[in-house]
C-alpha cells in the first residue's frame, strides 16, 4: 500500500457522529431563521425623504402596481459599505430588468472597488467590481431571504466559457426589504475587460452548468437547448479607458 492509500484509509477510519449531517442541517435551518430576525433588527432605518429622493420606480410586468426599489447606494449602506455606497452614487450604469413573467431580476448599478468586501470576510488587496440587483415576484408575493435565490447573475464574456469570469471568485450578500430580495455582488475586476464583450447574464439555478449556459459557434454565451428558466442579460457601461489587456490576459491565462 502506498503512503497515500494508507493515509486515506487510516483517516477514513476516524468515526464522526452518526447524526452529524442531520444535526448540522437542522442547526443551519434554525440559524437561517435566526439570521432573518437578526437582519430585521439590524437593518438601518431609511429616512422617508431619502427613499423618495433616491428610490427607483419600476413598473411591474403584469400589473399596474408600482414597485419602489432601493438604490444601489442604499443597499451598500445596509451592508455597512459606506465607501462603496459613494461609488454607487456615481454609477452611470442603466437600470435594466429581465423577467420570465413570474420573477423579475432588476440590475440597479455597478461600481469599482478596491480592498473591500470579500468572499470570506477577509480584506484582499485587489480591484473588484460590485453590482447590485434586485429580485421580486411580478404578482407581488413577498420573497424571503430564507428561501434563497432561485436566480443567479454572473459576469460572462464572449469567447470564453460561461463560468470564466466567475472562476476568479465571486460572492453575494443578500437581504430583503418589503418582499424584494437585494444582492450586493462582488466580482473579479470587470473593468480590465472593458474592451471585450462583457455582460451580466441571468439564469435559474445554482451553478452555470452546461445544461444551463454554453457557447455557440461565435463564442457568445447562450442558454443551452432545453433550459427553460428565466433568460436575459444586463448590458454594462464599462469605462473603456480602464481596459487592461495585459492584466486581462494574465488572469485568463490562469484559466488554462
Amino acid at each position: 500500500m502506498t503512503f497515500k492509500e494508507k493515509y486515506k484509509k487510516e483517516l477514513g477510519n476516524i468515526s464522526f457522529s452518526g447524526s452529524f449531517e442531520k444535526d448540522t442541517a437542522l442547526l443551519l435551518k434554525n440559524a437561517a431563521e435566526g439570521k432573518e430576525n437578526i437582519m430585521s433588527k439590524n437593518r438601518k432605518p431609511i429616512k422617508i425623504a431619502a427613499v423618495v429622493a433616491a428610490a427607483i420606480m419600476i413598473l411591474s410586468f403584469s400589473v399596474s402596481a408600482v414597485i419602489s426599489l432601493l438604490s444601489p447606494s442604499q443597499v451598500a449602506e445596509h451592508f455597512g459599505e459606506k465607501e462603496l455606497a459613494v461609488f454607487f452614487e456615481e454609477s452611470t450604469h442603466k437600470v435594466q430588468t429581465v423577467t420570465d413573467g413570474y420573477y423579475s431580476a432588476c440590475f440597479l448599478g455597478m461600481a469599482p472597488g478596491k480592498e473591500m468586501c470579500v468572499i470570506d470576510g477577509t480584506q484582499i488587496n485587489e480591484n473588484r467590481s460590485y453590482a447590485v440587483w434586485a429580485l421580486y415576484r411580478n404578482d407581488g408575493t413577498p420573497m424571503s431571504i430564507l428561501d434563497g435565490s432561485p436566480i443567479q447573475v454572473i459576469p460572462v464574456m464572449k469567447g470564453y466559457r460561461p463560468n470564466a469570469l466567475s472562476a476568479f471568485g465571486m460572492s453575494a450578500h443578500g437581504t430583503e426589504k418589503d418582499g424584494v430580495l437585494y444582492f450586493l455582488c462582488d466580482y473579479t475586476d470587470l473593468e480590465i475587460f472593458a474592451d471585450k464583450e462583457v455582460s451580466l447574464i441571468v439564469f435559474e439555478g445554482t451553478f452555470p452548468t452546461p445544461k444551463i449556459l454554453t457557447n455557440n459557434e461565435d463564442g457568445d454565451v447562450v442558454y443551452a437547448d432545453g433550459y427553460k428558466g428565466i433568460k436575459g442579460s444586463f448590458t454594462l457601461s464599462l469605462d473603456k479607458t480602464k481596459a487592461d489587456s495585459e492584466a486581462a490576459d494574465k488572469l485568463l491565462e490562469a484559466l488554462k
Binding site: 437561517a32 439570521k35 468572499i119 443567479q152 460572492s171 450578500h173 443578500g174 451553478f207 452555470p208 452548468t209
Partner: peptide, 15 residues
C-alpha cells in the same frame, strides 16, 4: 464553517 456559508452567501462558479 457551514454557518459562515449561510451568513456570507457566496456565489460559486461551480461545485
Amino acid at each position: 464553517a457551514f454557518l459562515k456559508l449561510i451568513e456570507k452567501r457566496p456565489c460559486f462558479g461551480d461545485a
